[in-house]
Simulated scan of single mutants.
Amino acid sequence: MKQARMMRLFGTSGNCFDVAIDHGMFNEHSFLGGIEDMRHAIEVVAEARPDAIQLPPGTAPILQSRPGKDRPALVLRTDIANVYGTPLPRRLFSAVIDRAVEQAVRLDAACAVVNLLMLPDEPEVYEACIRNINRLKPACDDAGMPLMIEPLVMQDNSKGGYMVDGNIDKILSLVRQAVELGADIIKSDPCDDPQEYHRVIQIAQGVPVLVRGGGKVSDREILSRTRVLMEQGARGIVYGRNVIHHADPAAMTAALMAIVHDGASTEDAMARLG
């Protein structure tokens, strides 16, 4: 059953484009731009037919109630954390939703996703993430549910809010830990130099790596970066704000799908944006 679910994500070309629309789970107002109306946001993205859409349990039924056989697969967000604001709250946490794998099965998800957060001087959050993963892994295996682990190395929030740390040495060690904890799929940040990303692919030991998009950047930057990351061996991408905050989310989805599945050049992908 796990392999069948993996095929729903990677079956078209062996690669996957997952559009993340789970930002409302984290109680951060700045994350809500473009997704104030979730029904509309999901409809627009689903019509563009990426391989998957990443959603929390509260809004996943919107996707799963779409008629027809060609709707994107569901990747279910299973955890919630309060680590994105500035300043940070007095007490930080990371917690898994109750009966997470049962909810994933009930919602017909193809995958469950959970964070592995590394924040400066916040070992309690990191420890909580380890506990979350250790709870989910055997339950996912029992249910035949692929587990996507999201190793996320963050900078100090006081530097300007939610910012990832592109230091490849930090990324490598956290990705490898996610693999050793039993990840079926890795969702990892790009490093500062995308040309080095083959090192992340190598350290993942054959576990497929999907690359996070991070903050909103220009069209050309996100497309050219995606092209390089795919050339480096990534098996796909998980982008949110670079799709949902775009003036034409459907066109951006089509452009990124062309790179992920067809090996399109940056210029060919740009042409799809008009």
Results as ranks from 00 to 15, higher is better:
residue 132 N to T: 04
residue 165 D to P: 05
residue 166 G to R: 12
residue 113 V to E: 04
residue 121 D to N: 13
residue 169 D to G: 04
residue 156 D to V: 02
residue 156 D to Y: 07
residue 172 L to H: 07
residue 110 A to D: 04
residue 75 V to M: 13
residue 125 V to A: 09
residue 149 I to N: 08
residue 160 G to R: 12
residue 82 N to A: 01
residue 163 M to Q: 15
residue 147 L to Q: 08
residue 146 P to K: 06
residue 86 T to R: 09
residue 146 P to T: 09
residue 70 D to E: 12
residue 69 K to E: 11
residue 163 M to T: 03
residue 95 A to Q: 09
residue 192 D to A: 15
residue 99 R to C: 05
residue 94 S to Y: 01
residue 122 E to M: 13
residue 145 M to I: 00
residue 181 L to Q: 08
residue 142 D to E: 15
residue 148 M to P: 01
residue 139 A to C: 12
residue 123 P to W: 09
residue 185 I to D: 03
residue 120 P to T: 12
residue 134 N to Y: 00
residue 73 A to Q: 00
residue 100 A to T: 09
residue 105 V to C: 08
residue 169 D to Q: 09
residue 89 P to S: 02
residue 85 G to M: 04
residue 165 D to F: 14
residue 71 R to F: 00
residue 98 D to T: 14
residue 118 M to I: 01
residue 133 I to L: 14
residue 160 G to S: 09
residue 114 V to W: 02
residue 179 V to K: 04
residue 116 L to G: 07
residue 88 L to F: 08
residue 110 A to C: 10
residue 139 A to W: 13
residue 83 V to N: 11
residue 155 Q to M: 13
residue 192 D to T: 15
residue 129 C to E: 03
residue 158 S to P: 00
residue 109 A to I: 00
residue 132 N to E: 01
residue 132 N to P: 03
residue 185 I to H: 03
residue 99 R to M: 08
residue 179 V to H: 09
residue 160 G to H: 08
residue 150 E to W: 07
residue 116 L to D: 07
residue 73 A to W: 03
residue 168 I to E: 05
residue 99 R to A: 13
residue 177 Q to E: 15
residue 113 V to A: 15
residue 73 A to R: 04
residue 164 V to W: 08
residue 182 G to H: 02
residue 162 Y to G: 02
residue 119 L to Q: 05
residue 172 L to P: 00
residue 153 V to T: 11
residue 117 L to H: 09
residue 174 L to M: 09
residue 171 I to Q: 01
residue 103 Q to P: 00
residue 106 R to G: 01
residue 187 K to V: 02
residue 193 D to H: 11
residue 149 I to Q: 12
residue 134 N to L: 13
residue 186 I to R: 03
residue 93 F to E: 02
residue 156 D to F: 10
residue 119 L to C: 11
residue 133 I to R: 01
residue 162 Y to A: 13
residue 138 P to T: 05
residue 85 G to K: 02
residue 128 A to F: 05
residue 186 I to L: 14
residue 102 E to C: 08
residue 107 L to R: 03
residue 71 R to N: 04
residue 98 D to Q: 13
residue 134 N to I: 06
residue 82 N to Y: 07
residue 132 N to W: 07
residue 128 A to M: 14
residue 187 K to Q: 08
residue 152 L to I: 15
residue 71 R to Y: 03
residue 191 C to D: 05
residue 153 V to G: 01
residue 157 N to F: 07
residue 137 K to N: 02
residue 185 I to K: 07
residue 90 R to E: 14
residue 84 Y to L: 13
residue 114 V to D: 03
residue 173 S to L: 11
residue 141 D to Q: 09
residue 154 M to G: 04
residue 169 D to I: 02
residue 168 I to C: 07
residue 95 A to E: 12
residue 157 N to Y: 06
residue 178 A to C: 11
residue 114 V to M: 05
residue 191 C to H: 02
residue 125 V to T: 11
residue 181 L to D: 01
residue 124 E to S: 14
residue 172 L to C: 11
residue 191 C to V: 13
residue 74 L to S: 07
residue 158 S to T: 13
residue 137 K to V: 05
residue 71 R to K: 14
residue 191 C to W: 05
